[in-house]
Every structure is written in structure tokens, then in C-alpha cells.
Design a protein around this nucleic acid. Structure first.
Length: 837
RNA sequence: GCCGGAGUGGCGGAAUUGGCAUACGCGAUCGACUCAAAAUCGAUUGCCUUUACAGGCAUGUGGGUUCAAAUCCCACCUCCGGCACCA
């Protein structure tokens, strides 16, 4: 008997799958396309190729591959492609440090990922492979940009933006975490720059509403996106700064129009565009200017600090409260944010904690307009600020009404007067997509003086037939506040496609999240040189039936991809509104309880384990560690345990092959054989159910382990007879069949040896209900809910019979003596509970 | 502060959704094989009392519903994740 040698088994099957292109599927209209088969699009998030794959990748693709195999064997035509998200900052930063062109490092890394995915035995349709940094791909990224531009969904404007001084680039709001750059951790500063945006805010309502259309997404991912979009309902109300002063209208957004009568002052954000106009030439000007400059120099995290004192400067101006005509003083203060609402607020210190703090600091009056539960206390300023509900007070004709009712009436009244209206506000900002970096897809527009008007050059899109706008080779990748592309003079200077005159290329590139917002469409027709995709292919395969990836992309990538899908559907380029019907968010693997990082030195290299124990052990282990949606701590002992199980299956196979006949039919008359057969069918049932109920792979694998353990325990007694030995062969082949989605190489090997067939071509086994049902049941007999005895009973027995058997037990009757039987509960085939007093 | 998720052995975690709590794996202890080790195989492994038979107590805490609760209800505690001066 030879020992389990994963290396040779795995090499053998990988060669078969590569030679036979086993996992390639045809598109509609292509030879080999089977229209009768239902389709399943199984997709894992594409990797960012940097260095070598890590355990997170192993887990993601192990989970995804198990699902793909499971669906295939349920009769689905499974499309399971792979690609690389190969543009991005790390490759470029590496280039700045080492001088090695990003393309070279990236392609080396892709080669390593590709090789390892093959070594892991992942069932990928390699004919569809793509990389986002190739001109064949980014040509279409640029084409999509132009489609959005034509629709007005891509636009260029000057805006205050988040700027990372270290990476010398603008960041999307989503890439700023705690006021720091998500990538390098440097504190972000605010700058005002001309930038390209995608109008994702136009889709805010649909992005919220269409959660309904999703089949199965983790609740917390939906919640995170919902929080991020941050829809709030309220009213926009106009406060006017009188003609005698400056004659300007200041709209504010409020979620509490019911507190309008309580507004005692008014605050503008330091970035508010009308701010300087209000104080120009007044005594307040110098102080306001100094305040604004000081705030401008502060970082986002300083400004957002938790226990920050309220600061501000009075403007010496006032606005009129439209509900009561009161003149209230204006301030500038940094607790008001320009990015949210209108950058101006009405301050109601009696009912808002932030306004309250500011009022305390500046000695401003409070005005209570909603009584709390305790009307007595409401007379003085006890319990303020009060955020709750109650009857109105100090609000003219609304006094005495509930504040919720007053809310509606006040909004209606303002609308009738033309001083306000109900309004909805979102936290979501438009998506800033331009980056002043080299390693990305160039934005396909040129600036033409000749076509421009009034001195400003015109933005002229590059015509689709001239795409791609290829990224030029450059020598210096270091950013100098503008894109390194700006230095490639020969590339920047071009011809205007509209007038033929001299023009200059846009030197910014696109955020890599743009590349990954549509790759799942390109897979469906990745060799198409005429279009981004053929409509027939997309209509057949799209949307993705099962998407798998880390939670770290719960907001950014997933929301951008949803936005793209909707925008492309609106352009009639595809038929679906949502890209991912089902989402599975895998948990993170840690080592020694901590996140893996190079600096901590606790990284796990999958290649090392694949070499030592085989890909099957490594893959099965990451699925067995715990529920895959949760994280887990990697231990070497754990991998060894799984390896032990697989080699036990291997030894069982070797033994069974030599000691049983392939054609023998298991004898169900022999109790041990029957027990083992029943166990095999129980395992089929269990694994199938665990798959269907949210990919509970840990328990599915445990069931196969149990089956193998039982086969091991019973085998020696069964080999004696040909017909009973057949049960061991059956159990072993079944175990191979069930473990195949996790350990495909060994699964295929064992199955082929015992059955002479390729396991992936076999339908998923179905449990025989007759074998699952047993002749006898073990009756659990309880007295007053406490376990007293276990009694064997025929499974067909009637209720009275079961009761009689239960009472006949010696242990039970002991507890019944001298007591009244109050109630008898019989759960058929399971349990008898006798209630006594 | 708001929203979401979770608390079960020494550890990762099971429990057919109200019916034998702790499957499976790790770790630990003992034994077989061996000159020895590795590998493998077998046994034990929630806590307490008991030589044993047996009994009692255990699913974060306290209460409730029920013949029966890890599971349902109420209150509380703790941990993790997301958002947060968002008007």
C-alpha cells in the first residue's frame, strides 16, 4: 500500500483539466453551447495582483470553487472565470521606490497568481481570463467612461477634495478612513481642484430601493451600504438675510422642521461660498478670515475629533426665521460641514445637542418648543437639549399639537408660502474618479483651445474608434502634485478629434474601482474585439448568481458595481438592474488571533502549505475552520488534522480496492453493512443540506469525516464477505464524491479508482429515504422533563404501544411510584415525556 | 450616540430550528505496534459528589412562557463590526 501522496495525485488531475479544458463553457451561438441547461454564474472577486496570493485568496477561491462544483453536479452550466485587477497604487509606489516599471512587477505577480490557482486545482474557465491593465481591457473601460460622459453621468468640476499628501493624489470619500488615507495612513488634507466625478448620487434612491431585488445578501452588508448612502427625510427651509444687510437667501436642510420656532441662531460652514461676501468690509472680516484659514489647515481627523470643543466666529449679520420673522444672528463654525445639506444650518439649541454646546460656549439663548414628558420641567431649561417627542409650545398656532403632526403642517405651510418644501438629503457624495497617478486607465478626453469658448478650453471626448488611449511608457513615476503623465509631452500634445487643431490630453487616470466595476461583464465575452460585450452573451449569463468575496469590499466595490450596472442598463446596454443576485461575504483568516501582516511577521504562505500537505488539505482546511462567513485563526495543527482525514480516505480507498469487488452489491440484510450504508446516505443528506443552507462547509466536511470514521470502524468486520465488503466500497466512493468540491484532486482520484468514472461528470448523489429511515427508534423517556431511560421501540409502533414500553422500563417506573400521572406527551418516533405530581 | 451581529468544554466550533447539549476537528491523558521515534490504530476527555452503581449542576447574568429552552419573551452585562459634529 502506498502512502497518500498529494503531490502526484494533484499534478495528475491538474494536467487532465488543463489538457481537456474541462471548465470552459461556450457562449450562445458558439459550438458546444447547450441552451437546454440552466446557467449559473459563480464569481469570486478578482484579485489585485501584488506579490503572491495569500490565505485570504485561498479561502475565497476554495469557497467559490466548492460552490461551482456543487452547481455543476446539479446540472447547471457553470461559468467560473478569473482575472486580475491589475492597475493601482501599490505597483506604482513600488515603481517609485525601485524604478521597476509597474507593468513588469504586475505581470510577474499575475504569473504567480495564475500558476498558484492552477496548483490549487480551482476549476476556472481560462479562456475568459482578463487583466484590467491591458489595452484590450481598458479600451472598454474608457468606452464606458465616454458613455457615462455623454449621458451627463461623468462630469468635471472644481470641488473641495480629499488629498493625500504622501501619495500626492486625490482620494474618493470612501477611501478616507478616520481622516487618513486608506492605503498609506497619511492624514488627508482638503484641497480645491478640478476633478472628474461620476454622478452616483443620481442613483442614490435606486441603490436603496433595489435592495429588494436581491435574493440573498448578508444583512450587515446591506446595512453598511444603507448607512453609507444615508438617506434622511426633512425639509429645505429658506432663511433670508435682509436687503438692508446683503439680500441673500440661505436655504438650510433640516430633519426637524417641527423645531423651527426654536431656532435662535444660524451657522455657516467655513467653506460656505457666500461667507466672505457677508463680512467683506465689516469689522468681523479679519477674524472670520483668520478662523477660516485656521480650519482649512486642519486635517479631517482633527476636525472630526470626538471631544472637540465648539468654536466659531460671529458674522455680525442676521437672517430672518421664516416661521416667525425673528432676526437671528449668524456665525461661522466648523461643526457645520459643507459636504452635507446646504452647508448652512438653523441652530435649535434646545433640541439639538451640538447646537446646545455651541450656545453654551457663546452664551446664546435657548428656546424650548417641544415639551418633554414632564411639562413642569419644560418651563425652565431642565433636561435640555431634549431630542424627543411631545406637545408643541412657544410655536404660535401650533402650540399644543403633537410635534409629529406639527412637522407635517409646518412643511405644508412653508411650501404654500414658497419658503420651503419637504426634501430628502443623502450622505452619499458623487464618486470622484480622477487620480493624479500613472498606473491607471487614462481618461479619454482632450482639451481643445480651438473648440473652447470664453478662454476656457473645451472638453472633447476621444471618439470610440480611436480607443484605447494608450498609457505611454514613462521613466519617472514620482507624482509632483499632478499626474506623472503630464511629463510625457509627446503624448500629451495631440490633435483635437473635433477640429483637428492642437489639443492636450487629460493627464489624470481613472480610479481602479472603475476597472473593477464592470469586469464581471467582460468575462462573458472577454475575447470580443468589436464591443465591450455582445448583448446575447450578457443576456444569457448575467447577472452573477453567486458572488463571493471579503467584507472589506462591502461598501466601495459593491456599491460602485451596482451603480455601473444600473447606469449601463439605463443606456440599454444590458437587461439587469442588479449585478449580484446572491452575495457571500467570507470572514478573514487571522494568525495567532491577529490580522496577518508582513510587519507583524505572522503571514501564512499558501504555497508553503500546498507544498507540504497538498492543495486539497489546504483548501479543505480553510473551509473546515468554521463557518466560512466568519473569520478563523489559522493553525498548523488544524491543517494536519484535515490532512490526516484525507490520508485516511486514501488508505481506505487502497484497501477497498484490493479487498472488494467493484461489481458487488451491498447487502442490506447484514446489520453492520446496513448501518454503514445508512451512514453514507445520512452524509449525502447532511452535506447537501449544509450547502443549500448558506454554505455551512465546516459541518458538511465534518459529516464526511464521520462517514470515513465509521467506514474505518466497520470495515474489518465487513471485508469477510463480498457482499458486505461492497458496503465499505460504497461508503468510500460516496465520501470521495461528497468531498470532491473541497478536495477535488483526491475526490476525483478515489472516485475513479472505485467507480471507474469521473466524479465531476456524475450527478450529485441523492439520499435514499428508505435507508435514512430505521426499523427501530430509540425512545427517550423523560419524567417531568428529565431523562430517565432510553428504550428501543419499533419505528412503526403506535402511540399507546410507545407509552406502554416507556412505562414498562424499570428506571421509569421507579420515578412514577406513588405519584399521579398528569399528562403523557408523545413525540412520534422520538420521545415520551410523562408528567407526574 | 445610532445601526447590525455574536456570547456553548482547555481551543475552533455542532445541535435536523423548542425534543439525547457539546457532532467534527485541535489539544491533553493512557494503551497497542516499535530497540526507539514518526506514522497508524484503540480508549478516555464539560464540571462536582462517588471505589463503584448512581446522582447533581452546566449553553454570558437575572427573571418568564412550556411537559420540555442554547433555541421563544422581558430586563441587564460583555465582546466584535459598520457609521458618526450628517443638522
Amino acid at each position: 500500500m502506498s502512502p497518500y501522496d498529494p503531490q502526484s495525485i494533484e499534478r495528475r488531475w491538474q494536467a487532465v483539466w488543463a489538457e481537456e479544458s474541462t471548465w470552459e463553457v461556450a457562449n450562445p451561438g458558439q459550438p458546444g453551447f447547450d441552451a437546454a441547461k440552466p446557467k449559473a454564474y459563480v464569481l469570486e472577486m478578482l484579485p489585485y495582483p501584488s506579490g503572491e496570493p495569500h490565505v485570504g485568496h485561498l479561502k475565497c477561491y476554495a469557497v467559490g470553487d466548492a460552490i461551482a462544483h456543487f452547481r455543476r453536479r446539479h446540472g447547471f452550466e457553470v461559468i467560473h472565470p478569473m482575472g486580475y485587477d491589475s492597475f493601482g497604487l501599490p505597483a506604482e509606489n513600488n515603481a517609485i521606490k525601485t524604478g521597476e516599471p509597474p507593468r513588469v512587477a504586475t505581470e510577474r505577480s499575475i504569473e504567480s497568481f495564475r500558476r498558484q490557482f492552477r496548483e490549487w486545482g480551482v476549476s476556472i474557465d481560462w479562456a475568459r481570463e482578463l487583466a484590467t491593465h491591458t489595452p484590450e481591457y481598458y479600451r472598454w473601460t474608457q468606452w464606458i467612461f465616454l458613455q457615462l460622459f455623454e449621458k451627463g453621468l461623468a462630469y468635471r468640476t472644481e470641488a473641495p477634495v480629499q488629498w493625500c499628501p504622501k501619495d500626492a493624489t486625490v482620494l474618493a470619500n470612501e477611501q478616507v478612513v478616520d481622516g487618513r488615507c486608506e492605503r498609506c495612513g497619511t492624514e488627508v488634507i482638503q484641497r480645491s481642484l478640478e476633478q472628474w466625478f461620476f454622478r452616483i448620487t443620481e442613483y442614490a434612491d435606486r441603490l436603496l430601493a433595489d435592495f429588494e431585488q436581491l435574493e440573498s445578501w448578508p444583512e450587515h452588508v446591506i446595512t453598511m451600504q444603507r448607512n453609507w448612502i444615508g438617506r434622511s427625510e426633512g425639509a429645505e427651509v429658506v432663511f433670508r438675510c435682509s436687503e438692508e444687510e446683503v439680500g441673500l437667501d440661505f436655504p438650510v436642510f433640516t430633519t426637524r422642521p417641527d423645531t423651527l420656532f426654536g431656532a435662535t441662531f444660524f451657522v455657516l460652514a467655513p467653506e460656505h461660498p457666500e461667507l466672505m461676501r457677508l463680512v467683506e468690509g465689516t469689522p468681523a472680516e479679519a477674524e472670520v478670515r483668520e478662523y477660516v484659514n485656521r480650519i482649512g489647515r486642519e486635517s479631517a481627523s482633527e476636525r472630526g475629533a470626538e471631544d472637540r470643543e465648539k468654536t466659531g466666529v460671529p458674522l455680525g449679520r442676521s437672517v430672518v426665521n421664516p416661521v416667525n420673522g425673528d432676526e437671528i444672528p449668524m456665525f461661522v463654525a466648523d461643526y457645520v460641514l459643507m459636504e452635507y445639506g446646504t452647508g448652512a444650518i438653523m441652530a435649535v439649541p434646545a433640541h439639538d445637542s451640538r447646537d446646545y454646546e455651541f450656545a453654551q460656549a457663546f452664551g446664546l439663548p435657548l428656546r424650548r418648543v417641544i415639551e418633554g414628558e414632564d411639562a413642569e420641567a419644560a418651563r425652565d431649561s431642565e433636561g435640555l437639549p431634549y431630542p424627543g417627542d411631545g406637545p408643541m409650545t412657544g410655536s404660535g398656532r401650533f402650540d399644543g399639537k403633537g410635534n409629529r403632526d406639527a412637522y407635517e403642517e409646518i412643511v405644508a405651510w412653508l411650501a404654500a408660502e414658497g419658503r420651503g418644501d419637504s426634501a430628502v438629503n443623502f450622505r452619499l457624495r458623487d464618486w470622484l474618479v480622477s487620480r493624479q497617478r500613472y498606473w491607471g486607465a487614462p481618461i479619454p478626453v482632450v482639451y481643445c483651445e480651438g473648440c473652447g469658448e470664453g478662454g476656457a478650453p473645451a472638453i472633447v471626448p476621444v471618439p470610440a474608434e480611436q480607443l484605447p488611449v494608450e498609457l505611454p511608457e514613462i521613466e519617472d513615476y514620482a507624482p509632483q502634485g499632478k499626474s506623472p503623465l503630464a511629463a510625457a509631452e509627446g503624448w500629451v500634445a495631440t490633435e483635437c478629434p473635433r477640429c483637428g487643431g492642437p489639443a492636450r490630453r487629460e493627464t489624470d487616470t481613472m480610479d481602479t474601482f472603475v476597472d473593477s466595476s464592470w469586469y464581471f461583464l467582460r468575462y462573458l465575452d472577454s475575447r470580443n474585439g468589436e464591443a465591450a460585450w455582445g448583448r446575447e452573451a450578457v443576456d444569457h449569463w448575467f447577472p452573477v448568481d453567486q458572488y463571493i468575496g471579503g467584507v472589506e469590499h462591502a461598501i466601495l466595490h459593491l456599491m460602485y458595481a451596482r451603480f455601473f450596472t444600473k447606469a449601463l442598463a439605463d443606456l440599454d446596454l444590458l437587461g439587469a438592474q442588479e449585478p449580484f443576485a446572491n452575495l457571500f461575504a467570507q470572514g478573514m483568516i487571522t494568525r495567532d488571533g491577529a490580522k496577518m501582516s508582513k510587519s507583524r511577521g505572522n503571514t501564512v504562505s499558501p504555497a508553503e502549505y500546498v507544498e507540504r500537505y497538498g492543495a486539497d488539505s489546504a483548501r479543505t482546511y480553510v473551509c473546515f475552520m468554521g463557518p466560512p462567513e466568519r473569520g478563523g485563526d489559522w493553525t498548523d495543527e488544524g491543517v494536519e488534522g484535515v490532512n490526516r482525514f484525507l490520508s485516511r480516505l486514501w488508505r481506505l480507498c487502497e484497501e477497498v480496492e484490493g479487498r472488494t469487488a467493484p461489481s458487488a452489491v451491498p447487502d442490506l440484510g447484514e446489520p453492520a453493512a446496513r448501518e454503514l450504508m445508512a451512514k453514507a446516505h445520512w452524509a449525502i443528506e447532511k452535506v447537501t443540506r449544509d450547502f443549500q443552507r448558506g454554505f455551512q462547509f465546516n459541518t458538511a466536511i465534518a459529516a464526511v469525516m464521520e462517514l470515513v470514521n465509521d467506514a474505518y470502524r466497520l470495515k474489518d468486520g465487513l471485508y469477510a464477505e463480498l457482499r458486505t465488503g461492497a458496503a465499505v466500497r460504497f461508503a468510500t466512493a460516496t465520501a470521495a464524491s461528497l468531498i470532491f468540491p473541497f478536495a477535488p484532486h483526491l475526490g476525483a482520484e478515489v472516485y475513479e479508482r472505485l467507480r471507474g468514472e469521473r466524479v465531476w461528470e456524475q450527478p450529485w448523489p441523492v439520499a435514499d429515504p428508505e435507508l435514512l429511515a430505521s426499523d427501530t427508534v430509540t425512545l427517550i423517556v423523560q419524567v417531568n422533563g428529565k431523562l430517565r431511560d432510553r428504550v428501543e421501540a419499533p419505528s412503526e409502533a403506535a402511540e399507546e404501544e410507545l407509552l406502554a414500553l416507556a412505562k414498562a422500563s424499570e428506571k421509569v417506573s421507579k420515578h412514577l411510584e406513588g405519584k399521579d400521572l398528569v399528562k403523557e406527551i408523545v413525540v412520534p418516533g422520538k420521545l415520551v415525556n410523562l408528567v407526574v405530581r
